[in-house]
Amino acid sequence: MQDLLDSALARITAAGTAAELEAVRVEVLGRKGVLAQLSKDMGKLSADERAARGKFINTAKQSLEGAYEELKSKFEAEALAKRLDSEWLDLTVPAPGARPGSLHPITQIQWEIEDLFRSLGFSVLDGPEVETEHHNFDALNIPPDHPARDMQDTFWLEGHHLLRTHTSPVQVRGMEKLGPPLRMIAPGRVFRNESVDASHEHTFYQLEGMMIDRNVSAGNLIYFMKTLLTAIFKREVTVRLRPGFFPFVEPGFELDIRCLICGGDGCPVCKQSGWVELLPCGLVNPHVLRMSGIDPNEWGGFAFGLGLTRLVMMRYAIDDIRWLQSGDLRFLRQF
């Protein structure tokens, strides 16, 4: 019996592959295996012999199964190691599929500034690119034959329509639609009939905004612009106002910021003046309020215009405005 057990153990440990081991398992531990044979004639034995045999079988089973499991684990571990080894992968190869694209730098700046204004409770509105003379000029206190129309060379379309020269018409539409109190900005594409060169475009982007409320003062405007520009430029900005003429505001201002390049000492960017002209603004002209159905005795406000194209050029130090509308991916993929 002991020999039988020893030879069975020897056969298990001799198995060289998982398949051989499985064959041995069937022969030794299977239903017709060695152990099964040993327990077959138990019925013929005496009670004592039976007890001894049973004990022997149990011990033998444990030792055979132990040997089997050990070897099986070893084979499995070897197989796994082999599979893992065979699955070596070069992760330095480029991933398939498209590279991420990118958003136009104007879009990026526009979103950034829209989000900034929204955090200040402003609505973001847009209007048509094709405008009526009324909304683009008359409602903004620029009647026909007003010299101010020269300031904004206009693309005229058949049927007495025009391409908006500013997004101010959206302010008119905003006032008409939402009424006071009102905080809104209107970013968008505008058109001026100007020859294109490195610093002039006939198609560009601007953002105009207004706040209409009770008792809005020039002091409020200065505070607001300073806060806004500090957020846009991500550093403390010093502003100054000087007179500027824009028919839809009274008084009108040109807002300059202290030159961010030289800090005010004078450099080529600020033409040695220490200041850079940044945006037009002013207190909304009562005529404009009245034309939009708002009582100027009760309400007042300020308005301003911000050149998005100009901001993009400033932020990325772009030397030629024509890149922006070029569709050239060598330029656009940088953003």
Binding site: G97, A98, R99, P100, G101, S102, L103, H104, I106, T107, E129, L163, R189, F191, T203, L324, Q325, G327, L329, L332, R333
Partner: peptide
């Protein structure tokens, strides 16, 4: 994977 362009009207 698309890069945004801006063209004239």
């Amino acid at each position: 994977g698309f890069t945004e362009v801006s063209n004239y009207s």
